[in-house]
Simulated assay, not measured.
Amino acid sequence: MALNHEHRDAVMTPRSRISWWRADEGRVSAFVVVLVSAILALAGLTLDGGLALAAKVRAHGQAESAARAGAQAIDLAAYRSNGTLRLLPTQAIARAQAHLAAQGAAGTATISGDTITVTVTAAQPTQLLGLVGITSLSVHGQGSAHPQRGITAIEP
């Protein structure tokens, strides 16, 4: 009489069940290693990607504020004589660089016409991606500003 599967499993001895487990030959272990590696890689991309995005927003804010600081270096003599708003390039760049240094940021400032542009570059260290050899991510932020006239009169 042939045994069906349910009956065969019911009559399996503990020894035969153990031999089935030993017959696995490590295939489950390899699957677990690959699965855990993939989960760690996804967690690393999520965590370190979020940290890099936050660092990029911070670099952008630092560049914008440094550009505004540089845009305050206007040529007062020209403004008082004929109302022309223009930047003093060396002072504007110096103010922007001093503002970046006060924030602990590194960047460059350039002048084009009456606009100052500041670019901040920062390295964001990684938390989990360091396990696969990526120790830091480079982020950049850029901001521009130019001098503007304020409100000179309030109309009723």
Rank of each mutant, 00 (worst) to 15 (best):
M1Y: 00
M1A: 15
M1F: 01
N4K: 07
N4F: 05
E6A: 14
R8P: 02
D9A: 15
A10V: 12
A10Y: 11
A10E: 15
V11T: 14
V11F: 13
T13H: 15
P14M: 15
R15P: 05
S19T: 11
W20G: 10
E25D: 11
V28F: 04
V28C: 05
S29C: 05
S29H: 02
V32Q: 05
L35Y: 11
L35F: 14
L40V: 13
A41E: 01
A43Q: 01
A43E: 02
A43Y: 01
A43N: 01
G44C: 10
G49K: 14
G49N: 11
A52E: 06
L53S: 15
L53E: 15
A55Q: 14
A59F: 02
H60E: 15
H60K: 12
Q62F: 02
A63G: 04
A66D: 03
A66N: 03
G70T: 14
D75V: 09
A77V: 11
A77W: 06
A78H: 10
G83N: 00
T84N: 04
L85M: 14
R86W: 07
L88P: 01
I93S: 13
A94T: 14
R95P: 13
H99W: 15
A102M: 08
Q103K: 08
Q103N: 11
A105D: 04
A106C: 00
A106Y: 09
G107T: 10
G107W: 08
A109P: 02
A109Y: 02
T110K: 03
T110V: 03
S112Y: 02
S112N: 05
T115K: 03
I116D: 05
I116K: 08
T117W: 03
A122R: 14
A123V: 01
Q124T: 08
T126I: 10
Q127V: 05
L128D: 02
L129S: 07
L131Y: 04
G133Y: 06
T135C: 02
S136P: 00
V139S: 11
V139W: 00
H140C: 00
S144P: 06
Q148T: 01
R149D: 09
R149C: 07
G150N: 10
T152K: 10
I154Q: 10
